[in-house]
Each structure stands twice: as structure tokens, then as C-alpha cells.
Amino acid sequence: MSRTFLKMNGLGNDFVVIETATQAFEPTPEEIRAIAKRGDGGVGCDQVIAIDPPKAPGAAAYVRFWNSDGDEIGACGNGTRCVAWLLMQSSGKEAVAFDTSAGRLSGVAAGEKLVTVDMGPPALDWTQIPLSEEMNTERVELQVGPIDAPLVHTPVCVSMGNPHVVFFVDAPVSDEFATGTGSLVEHHPLFPEGVNVGFAHIAARDHIQLKVWERGAGLTSACGTGACAAQVAAVRRGLTDRKARIQFESGSLVIEWRESDGHVIMTGPVSMDFTGKLPVAA
């Protein structure tokens, strides 16, 4: 039996979304890879998302995320906005909460196909990222390139339900640089679970230009948790104010690391692309 899906995106970061209330979805990594593959019968996406019935009081759903390489992950920022928008559309409400393996997330309508989500507080201890050895996550002892002239060095580490390392760069980096450097760092021994790699250029106290190499997905047009991690990293270093615009080539997100409760608040657009049916084998 084929399964119905929704194709959505947030700033070009695209998703296959499957609602499981009326159709079972317990995919193998191979099935996820087949769905995510672009061309050759796959739908094509950066992540696959399952919206399950809720497991706990106060939640509208339980949500699962997979990267295109088949690995299940704890959080996906742009995907969270898409899920929140869908749940608000189906309920007719202006606010919604749902659970993930990384904890409870919530969203509110912020305009026409514009959603604000509470991504919760960042995890900053080295055991929470996690790192393979004890280290100050505000200034991690890591560099790429020659010892006397590293390409990037001394990043900040943040977990937003998934691990991120953020390098600050003097100018926006090219896709080639992000791919070459990001693919090296993603599987560095310091990160036993792999890591998402961000390259952040501070354009102003309220403006970061960002490119992200995503763990298990590669270079993507936008990364919501990567934007959250970059803003948290910049605030920790004193480089930006608490609220800033995080700019990707495909558009921008507004991220605030709220001082009152330490939560990270993300506002950005969602887009519904099309609906379809997965191949029977998927």
C-alpha cells in the first residue's frame, strides 16, 4: 500500500512529511535513503519527517526526523516550523506544542506562512554535545589546515537537540569551502556522534551570514538548528546581541536567545510544495 506524503520546505531546506494517524510508517534506513534520493524514483529531500499521534498530555503530536542518509535525529529547526504550521492548520489554532526525542517544542503563528517556534534551551556542556573529551565548548581546541595558518580554528560547540560546531570566519565562505571543510569536521574523532558544521560571518551585531554542512545531509540551503546554534555561539563570544537575523543564500531566519528563560526562539517562513504518494516499496 502506498503512503501519502506532503512535500514542504523552509528556506529551500526540503522535507517529505508523512502523517501516521491513518498509515503506519516504521522505515528502515534504506527506505529513508530511497525516499530522500533525488531522481531515480526517490521523492528527494534533505530530511524525512513523521508526524505521529501524541504520546503525552498537552502535545498535539509526537514527531520523528531522519536525515537523508537514513539516520534518525533529534531535531530539525526548519522542519519544526513546517510541522508546527501543519498542526496549526489542522487544528485551527494559533499555537501548538509537540514532542520529539529531543524534548517538547512549541510554535505560534507569526503571519502568513510565517511561524515562530520555541526550540528550548541550548545544551552547552561538553557531555551534552557530546564531545569525546572534556573541553570548554566556548573555545574548542580544533583547527583545520596547517598548524601555523589554519583555515578555521577555535570553534564554539552547541547542541540544539543535535550537535553543532560553529566556526567564525572573516568573510562568507564558498560552497566548495563549506563542503571540503565540513565533510572533514563532520566525522572528526572529537565528535563521537558526528556534528553539523557552521561557518558564520558576523556582518553586524544583529546580522550573521551563515553556511551549514549538515551531518548526514551535506550542504543544505538552510539549517534551522544551525541558525540557532550560530546565534547562541555568537552571543557566547560577545559578537552579537541576543536577537539577530541569520542569513542564508535562500533567505533569513530571526533567532533570539532569550535572556529571561534561556530558550532559543526562531521565526521564519514555511512553504507547501506538493502532495504525492510514496512508491509501494518505500
Rank of each mutant, 00 (worst) to 15 (best):
V166R: 07
I129G: 03
T127R: 14
E133S: 15
A222E: 01
A178I: 09
K211T: 12
L184D: 11
D148T: 12
L184V: 14
V173W: 12
I147H: 14
P121I: 00
Q209F: 01
E176K: 14
V185W: 07
P163A: 00
L142G: 07
T181W: 10
G161P: 02
P150Y: 03
N162K: 03
S159V: 03
S221Q: 11
A222W: 02
D148I: 12
Q209G: 01
M160D: 02
L151C: 11
S132Y: 09
G216H: 00
A204R: 10
T179G: 14
T154S: 11
S132K: 05
F168N: 07
F191T: 04
T154Q: 09
W213H: 10
S221E: 04
A217G: 06
P192H: 06
A203E: 13
L151Q: 15
G182C: 13
V158W: 01
I202E: 05
H201G: 06
L184F: 15
F167E: 09
A123N: 01
P192D: 06
D175G: 11
S174R: 02
A149Y: 09
D125Q: 15
G182S: 14
N196K: 07
F199Q: 06
W126K: 01
Q209L: 09
F191R: 07
Q209W: 03
V166K: 03
P163K: 07
D148G: 09
G145W: 10
G161W: 04
A203Q: 13
G218N: 02
V156P: 00
I208L: 12
V165N: 08
V197R: 04
V140N: 10
V144D: 11
S174V: 03
W213R: 03
G161T: 00
T220N: 05
G218I: 02
E186I: 13
L210V: 10
E193S: 12
F168K: 06
H153Q: 09
P130N: 08
Q128E: 11
L184E: 15
S132C: 10
G216L: 00
I202T: 07
E133F: 13
T220V: 05
D206A: 08
M160T: 04
P146H: 11
H201L: 03
V140I: 15
S183Y: 12
I147V: 14
E186L: 14
S159P: 02
H188A: 08
S183Q: 15
A123Y: 03
